[in-house]
């Protein structure tokens, strides 16, 4: 009579589980390093709230330094993760990648990330494809199983930027840059309209998209305060 459990069966499964565990360990190491780069870049970026627009160039070049490190680590992550089913481990890094995307979108919006073909200017929105080019990874990959940046990650990263910009609207007024607040207001309203085009299900994305209206309200209040006092700069000034 054959045994209940073939000894080979146990060995196979044990090997599989051990493999999985060591993959996760190695991923954790890469993600640790990526996390440091992202945190640093976010930290430098938070200085925009106290930096007048005239000094953006210096600040943004420092941010770009951090972003370059992020790009390097995302490259390493991509190389490692592409060996395994993407969605098996995606949950481990998706937050971090979202944060990294946020730093890039915000930096570019403030006038950084300029390339030969696309000079940096305030108000420039990077699209998903631009983000993929910057990180040098595919986006919204469907035909093969490898590392990429998903649509959800881009949208969630973008929503974080909206939050940050609504804060910047307040602080730019404090720094005397009323035009910035008005520009942010227009940008956020446009994106809010854009997000309403989407058919969302009851998931994380839906929750975060719902929060955009608070950012809209926040900047509208700022613009209202400015207009009440006739502080909105006129076109062409």
């Amino acid at each position: 009579m054959p045994p209940m459990i073939d000894p080979a069966l146990f060995d196979q499964l044990k090997t599989k589980i051990e493999e999985d565990t060591s993959i996760r360990k190695e991923l954790d190491q890469i993600l640790d390093e990526l996390n440091q780069n992202v945190s640093y870049t976010q930290g430098v970026l938070s200085r925009i709230h106290s930096t007048p627009r005239s000094r953006y160039t210096t600040l943004l070049s420092q941010v770009e330094g951090g972003i370059n490190k992020e790009i390097e680590m995302v490259g390493r992550l991509s190389e490692f993760a592409s060996q395994y089913p993407y969605y098996k481990y995606n949950h481990k890094w998706t937050r971090m990648v979202q944060d990294a995307i946020s730093t890039v979108i915000l930096c570019a919006w403030l006038g950084g990330m300029s390339t030969d073909s696309k000079p940096g200017e305030v108000g420039r929105l990077l699209k998903l494809e631009d983000i993929g080019q910057i990180f040098n990874v595919p986006v919204n990959l469907k035909d093969r199983d490898a590392f990429h940046i998903t649509i959800e990650e881009y949208l969630l990263g973008l929503i974080a930027v909206i939050d940050d910009l609504s804060r910047l609207a307040v602080n730019s007024v404090t720094l005397g840059d009323n035009a910035m607040a008005v520009q942010i207001s227009g940008f956020i309203k446009d994106l809010h309209a854009g997000f309403q085009v989407l058919n969302l299900k009851n998931d994380v994305l839906r929750k975060r998209v719902d929060s955009i209206k608070y950012a809209v309200k926040k900047v509208e209040d700022v613009v209202y305060d400015l207009s009440l006092r006739n502080l909105i700069p006129q076109e062409g000034q």
């Binding site: 699209k127 919204n140 227009g186 940008f187 309203k189 446009d190 854009g194 085009v197 989407l198 299900k201």
Partner: peptide
Amino acid sequence: RQVVRNAYTPMFESIRDELDEHH
């Protein structure tokens, strides 16, 4: 501003199609 909004609308529309497919 209407014009500016239109600048992002196509992007969101194509994203909508992708998300619909997934859902």
